[in-house]
Simulated scan of single mutants.
Amino acid sequence: MADFSSIIKFLSEREYKLVTAESCTAGMVTSLLATTPGCGAVLEIGYVVYSEKAKHYCLGVDLQTMDAFGLTSEEVAQEMALGALDRSGADFAIAVTGKAESNDELGGVICFAYALRMYHITKVFTQTKKFNGDRETVMRSAAEYAIVNIPNAHNQLLAQFLLCR
């Protein structure tokens, strides 16, 4: 099992509260973080929103966004992250959506969004990656990637804040 203590430390040192919004990883990001000592200092809440209806009602993802771009899209991931931030006391969000398993070209394609709220301003960084393997392997790989990518996403988000100056 991977050790995420450095990620917990990273978030804790910045005094961030984390919210997760997960679809295809079905809560695995939150679960993996929860196995790490010290997670209670940073983990605020985790949403598991599998269906379009859940994404809309729980996180406020616009139905038109899902219709226009599909569930496997950075646009949906972005709205999931923003909705999770808006509905929680957190200031850092991770959202994950995609297809862990399918027979088409979207099989293994996972979209990530990271959002950071600072000084009443929110910035979002999105990314899409393709993972190979069976359903469980893709889910685990995507969840682990979502976590270990936090420092990189944080740097991307800070750069956006600096551009606002």
Rank of each mutant, 00 (worst) to 15 (best):
A2C: 04
F4K: 03
S5V: 05
S5N: 09
S6V: 10
S6E: 14
I7S: 01
F10C: 02
E13L: 06
R14P: 00
E15I: 06
E15P: 00
E15A: 11
T20Y: 09
E22S: 03
M28T: 12
V29Q: 06
V29Y: 04
S31Y: 12
L33C: 01
A34T: 10
T35H: 10
T36P: 00
G40W: 09
A41R: 14
A41E: 15
L43F: 05
Y47V: 07
V48I: 14
Y50R: 09
E52M: 07
H56E: 12
Y57V: 07
Y57E: 11
C58Q: 14
L59Y: 06
G60A: 02
G60P: 00
D62C: 09
Q64S: 10
Q64H: 11
D67Y: 14
A68N: 15
F69E: 10
L71R: 13
A77E: 12
Q78I: 10
Q78D: 12
A81M: 08
A81G: 01
L82N: 09
A84E: 07
L85G: 07
G89V: 11
G89F: 12
G89Y: 14
A90C: 03
K99N: 13
K99T: 08
K99D: 12
A100P: 00
E101N: 15
D104Y: 03
E105K: 14
G107M: 04
G107E: 11
G108S: 08
G108N: 10
I110V: 15
F112V: 05
F112H: 01
F112R: 04
L116R: 07
Y119I: 11
I121F: 11
T122E: 07
K123M: 11
F125G: 00
F125Q: 06
T126E: 09
Q127E: 15
T128R: 15
T128A: 15
K130D: 03
G133Q: 09
E136R: 15
T137V: 11
V138A: 04
V138R: 03
M139S: 02
A146I: 01
I147K: 02
V148S: 07
I150Y: 01
I150G: 01
N152D: 11
H154G: 01
L157I: 06
Q160F: 06
